[in-house]
Amino acid sequence: MDAAATQACTAFAGTQRLAAGPVRDVARAVKIHVDAHPESQVLVFDRTTAQPVEFDLRGTVEDVLARLDPTASSATQPAESDSRPRGPGRPKLGVIAREVTLLPRHWDWLAAQPGGASVTLRKLVEDARRAAEGADRRRTAQEAAYRFMSAMAGNAAGFEEATRALFAADAAAFESLTHSWPADVRDFARELASRAFNPQQEAA
């Protein structure tokens, strides 16, 4: 995962949590640690998705941090011309035109709705999105927790059973099965999994 696109992350040196928080703070801690312990194995995870985050650790701490500044690279790129032909839709309003394929009876029904096809389709999509929000959050959280667990606790006692508890949304079993894991790995796995057990919980 692109480090510059990460808001917050957590770094582990072996099974110990090295740093957690804003990406620049974590990058600084990782660089200092690796310089002092070049043999150390450090893994960094996005705090929300548990996607692996890679830092370019070449040079000084200041060099590492400078590469995390998205404005540094964009400043050297030529500005895009405003004279490019505009596509369909209303991009200034965030509206994008794309092809939708429906049966004739669907088009007939949409055309008869107040506001026409576009307004009705947007309402239907919003309603469906809200209805699936809890399930989507649970699935995303389960995937994040499993991603981290596979990387850091794949050989730990009870891993397979804990995985089953995670996807069964059995919080009590998950807590029990992860009890013997290294403390920092266990705690972060539980933090990620808690969003699967409580899908209304906002990501930290």
Rank of each mutant, 00 (worst) to 15 (best):
R138E: 13
A172V: 12
C9M: 09
R28V: 03
T49S: 15
I32C: 07
G89F: 03
Q200E: 14
T71I: 04
H179L: 14
E133F: 12
P114E: 11
V100E: 07
A132T: 05
N198H: 14
I96D: 04
A172D: 15
A4V: 12
L124E: 07
Q142L: 09
A29D: 09
W181I: 01
A162E: 05
L43W: 10
V61L: 08
T101P: 07
R190A: 11
V185Y: 01
A8Y: 06
L57M: 05
R90D: 11
V61T: 09
A135N: 15
C9R: 01
V119I: 10
L103D: 13
M149A: 14
A141D: 05
W181A: 01
L121W: 07
I96H: 08
P38Q: 05
P91S: 10
A135L: 15
A204G: 14
D170S: 11
Q201H: 14
S81P: 03
G154K: 02
A66S: 11
V53S: 01
D2Y: 08
A112V: 02
E80G: 14
D46V: 01
A4F: 04
L18D: 09
A168N: 14
E175N: 06
A183R: 15
R164L: 08
W107F: 06
F167E: 03
C9W: 01
V119G: 03
M149D: 03
R86M: 09
L110E: 05
R137A: 09
A117Y: 05
A135I: 10
D82L: 13
A72H: 06
Q51P: 02
A75V: 06
R67Q: 13
D2L: 13
L121Y: 04
R129S: 07
E80V: 13
A128G: 09
A141S: 15
F159P: 05
A183Q: 15
V44R: 00
R67E: 12
R122I: 11
H106Y: 12
E80Y: 11
A50M: 07
M1Y: 11
F174S: 01
Q200R: 14
D56V: 10
A162T: 05
L121H: 04
S150L: 13
A144W: 00
A72V: 12
T60I: 08
G115I: 07
R139A: 13
P78H: 07
T6F: 01
P70Y: 08
L102Q: 06
V95C: 00
P182T: 07
V23A: 04
A29N: 02
V26F: 01
R98T: 11
V119S: 11
S40Q: 12
V42A: 02
R138Y: 09
